[in-house]
Amino acid sequence: MESRRTAVILPGRSYGAYVPQLFFPMLAAQRRGAEVRALDWKRLEELDTIKLDKIARWVSTQVAPVLKDCDPASTVVIGKSLGSYAAPLVARYGLPAIWVTPVLISQDVVDGIKDCAAPRLIVGGSADPVWDADQAFQLSDRVVEIPDADHGLMVDDLARSAAGLGKLATGAEHFLDSIGWTTS
């Protein structure tokens, strides 16, 4: 019996799972029959007291219970920013992932994405201080870079920002199709 498709949403620090940067990839997964499991960070105030080199461990302790029963054949992770610190754990479970504005200046995040044998899409903005386009293209052959976009994938013009989110949505749809998650 085939497992039900599941999209695990790992939000950024400042907003929940339903920001446009996560909503469009999540909707693409839902339209392909996925059930959504959106993580809500617990004890977020602890982050202010945690040293930078311990963030990946803190994130993993919260994400591990969500991923432990996931089937790699029917699960995709969609993570933004803080959620990208779960990349080492996602790699351990061998799950495909869509990383939106991953923290590519963190070696934990880079190593986690690099160590994962499963397919991945990496999305970021060229004006994001935690984005490294060269690194992104070394980590995956599926990269969407939005020119002049910041960490929220926004630019100075709202219409151009919406167009950038459209590129994210299209990239997510193509990625999901490429891993066999086509619409029926």
Rank of each mutant, 00 (worst) to 15 (best):
C116P: 08
G124P: 04
V123D: 09
D148C: 00
A159W: 02
W99S: 07
P65I: 06
R142A: 12
L89G: 01
R57W: 09
G83K: 00
V8S: 01
E46V: 03
K114A: 09
K80Y: 03
D177E: 12
V76E: 00
I105F: 04
V130K: 11
K42V: 00
Q30H: 12
V103L: 07
C70W: 04
K51A: 12
Y18R: 10
L39W: 10
L44M: 06
I105A: 09
S184A: 10
L27I: 13
A118W: 14
P11H: 03
V19Y: 04
L39G: 00
L104S: 06
E35S: 10
I98R: 03
R5G: 05
A162T: 15
T182K: 15
S74Y: 15
E2K: 12
S106H: 11
T6H: 07
G166K: 13
P72Q: 04
L82T: 00
P11R: 02
L67S: 15
Q135K: 15
W181Q: 11
K68F: 11
D132Y: 03
R120S: 15
A38H: 10
G164S: 04
D115N: 15
P20K: 12
E145M: 06
L10K: 08
E145T: 03
P119C: 02
W131N: 08
D132G: 09
A86M: 11
G112S: 12
D115H: 14
L82W: 12
L52T: 06
A136L: 08
P20C: 07
D40T: 15
S3T: 11
V143Y: 06
W181F: 07
F23H: 10
S106R: 13
D111G: 07
T6F: 05
E35K: 11
K51T: 08
E35T: 05
A118F: 11
L10E: 01
A163T: 10
R142S: 10
G152Y: 14
L27R: 13
F137H: 15
G16H: 14
D134K: 13
L168N: 10
A172I: 08
L10V: 02
I122V: 13
L95E: 02
V103C: 07
S126H: 12
P119T: 02
D177T: 06
V76S: 02
W181P: 15
K167I: 00
V90P: 14
S106K: 07
V76I: 11
E173K: 02
V8Y: 01
R57F: 15
S106A: 10
V103Y: 11
L47Y: 02
I98F: 12
T182E: 14
L67R: 08
V110C: 02
D148W: 14
C70M: 14
W41E: 11
Y15P: 02
D53G: 09
D115P: 01
A118I: 14
A73Y: 04
D177Q: 08
G83H: 08
S106V: 06
V144Y: 01
D157I: 05
D132S: 14
R142Y: 09
S84C: 13
A34D: 00
Q62F: 12
P20Y: 13
V90H: 14
A7D: 03
S178M: 02
I113N: 13
T101L: 06
G171F: 08
Y15F: 14
S84H: 10
I55W: 08
W99E: 03
P96L: 04
S60P: 03
A64P: 03
D150N: 15
P11V: 03
T61Q: 08
I9Q: 05
Q107A: 09
L139E: 04
A91K: 01
